[in-house]
């Protein structure tokens, strides 16, 4: 009987701490949960996951190369609500170039960029009194490919 109690205790603790360790770490959240673009796009190491609380806003400073097409996708726990994503110029004015609030908070978008520049991806989630003390994972997936126009120009013959 003692042996059985030992085994059940160990099983219980393994299960409990496994769940906790998963909860603490969001490192892979964007890989596992964000919607991916098609296979012509390549994964960028600028992708990242983070912990968010309701009402929080975070800024991801990224670099986009000239002549490349980018795909940005976000995902988070449903309790965080609609994720707002704004693409901004990285200057004093921080001019908004794209805001997913204008597109019913769509969780992905594409853009083409002509000249290499620094950009800001600002991600925010609404306040929520019910879950205000909880932390949730949020992922930002960034993919890229060479500008399609250039590719087409190079595709001569068959």
């Amino acid at each position: 009987m003692k042996y059985l109690i030992h085994i059940t205790s160990v099983l219980f603790f393994i299960s409990f701490f496994y769940e906790i360790s998963k909860a603490q770490n969001c490192a892979d959240y964007h890989v596992e949960n964000c919607r991916w673009a098609d296979r012509t796009y390549l994964y960028s190491r600028q992708s990242r996951s983070a912990l968010f609380t309701p009402g929080m806003k975070s800024v991801f400073n990224i670099i986009v190369y000239g002549g490349e097409e980018y795909y940005i996708s976000v995902s988070a726990h449903r309790k965080l609500g609609d994720i707002r994503v704004q693409l901004k110029e990285n200057n004093e004015k921080q001019t908004i170039l794209y805001d997913n609030a204008d597109f019913k908070y769509e969780d992905y978008f594409y853009f083409k960029n002509a000249i290499t520049k620094k950009m800001i991806v600002e991600v925010s989630v609404p306040e929520n009194e019910k879950y205000k003390d909880e932390k949730f994972c949020l992922g930002v997936l960034i993919e890229f490919r060479r500008n399609k126009v250039e590719e087409e120009d190079n595709q001569l013959g068959f």
Partner: peptide, 21 residues
């Protein structure tokens, strides 16, 4: 008292492409 949480719960992230990119 977990620095992983602190690092993951911040307001500003500085990202850059990999050397391969």
């Amino acid at each position: 008292p977990d620095s992983i949480q602190q690092r993951q719960l911040k307001n500003n992230y500085y990202q850059f492409p990999s050397a391969k990119e």
